[in-house]
Design a protein around this nucleic acid. Structure first.
Lengths: 208, 208
DNA sequence: TTTTACTTGTGTCAAAAGGTACAGGTTTGA
DNA sequence: TCAAACCTGTACCTTTTGACACAAGTAAAA
């Protein structure tokens, strides 16, 4: 089974003409770890579908960063999707954080396919819905929760996703996910340790 | 010209069968000021399209609120749109802040029409794109800007929209737009006045 | 082994934001 | 005209977050 077949299956693409189109137009590309896929201020020319690896999507401002989401197989970055509908510059960054494989589709086909192929339309609509609600939840948390609650939520999210109570992220990496500074994370984690919520080791946080 | 005709024109709905469907199924309703259209935690059964008036959409947490956006003619609340695609509870609030007129469409038709009618599909997709990017900009501001910058941005937004340098909002209303408290707004505005950025009167802020 | 880069801990201080309290102004409508 | 509801200003204090500084630990490669 090729990467394309995996894509078709995961995206529930059933129309043969659409499959042919994607095979014809899509470019399968390996991107090594730390390669930028989208950059703030640069034009978006391709819709990238991740078929292997992991892509981090975030916003930044001077020396701070805040995570938006991770794109994993089989997903697409909703931002590059939204850009596909109207020629514009990226307002986010996306970078492969593992060696990854993506399928690139020139943006001009995206909206055209929405009209021609119901399964493509369903895929794009679902991406928007999911992403919008996800961002909305993040927005609410950012607006109303203090950093300790936000950090704990994030740690719990990670442990749920990885199915392990151990988190191998440095304090500065956590700061960049949550839009704060390293020192704040270090101090908050120390508090958590005193409260018996976590165990701290070098580059390792165990959630109790 | 009826409200429905206005709707068709504004939404660029061209298909006659879709027009008939909307006329058949849509319910034209007057809602008086302060009527809730969506409430956090309650099921969404209708997609509401605003044809007259103004609807405020926000999130809340205990005694704080933060604005998401206003829905004006002819627009729809993207949240009720997203809910239309999957039976779910609202994670936001929406309330008419003027006497308004809406057209209500039961959610079960929304995704069906996306497939059948290209113009409807274009409308929903555009709503998602616009709203997603808008929320993303808000998220970035919330993450990286301090309250003085956020307040000033908001005041400028209002003056641009109303084409008037005078803003008739109380400090507590502003606090509810920005997710903070009345005192913080009062103090920040006083600072602005000292810096010669604004003139303050009772329930009136003049941006200089 | 030594260098280099990264990581963690923490003390001190400053800035930002929020909470409480109270005084007094404005508006509306009974 | 009086009361009630809402609005504004501000003093004082606390909590939260951030900035700076420095010490010390860890890992990996030269």
């Amino acid at each position: 089974m090729t990467e394309f077949d995996l894509l078709f299956k995961a995206l529930k693409i059933t129309e043969d003409p659409l499959k042919e189109k994607i095979l014809d137009i899509g470019v399968l590309q390996d991107v090594s770890k730390n390669t930028y896929i989208l950059e703030q201020g640069k034009y978006i020319k391709w819709l990238a579908l991740v078929v292997k690896g992991k892509v981090r999507v975030w916003q930044e401002n001077e020396d701070r960063q805040i995570l938006l989401y991770y794109v994993e197989p089989i997903q697409t970055c909703v931002l590059s999707l939204s850009a596909s509908f109207r020629d514009c510059k990226s307002i986010i960054n996306a970078k492969a954080i593992e060696d990854s494989t993506i399928i690139k589709i020139p943006v001009r086909y995206i909206s055209e396919w929405c009209i021609k192929y119901p399964s493509w339309n369903t895929f794009t609509t679902n991406s928007f819905i999911f992403s919008y609600e996800d961002l909305l939840r993040s927005y609410k948390k950012l607006a109303f929760n203090k950093i300790d609650k936000r950090l704990l939520d994030y740690l719990e999210l990670i442990t749920n996703k990885t199915n392990s109570s151990v988190i191998n992220l440095s304090h500065s990496q956590l700061a960049k996910e949550l839009g704060t500074t390293r020192e704040v994370i270090s101090k908050t984690l120390k508090q958590f340790e005193h409260s018996g919520i976590v165990n701290l080791k070098f580059k390792e946080i165990e959630l109790l």
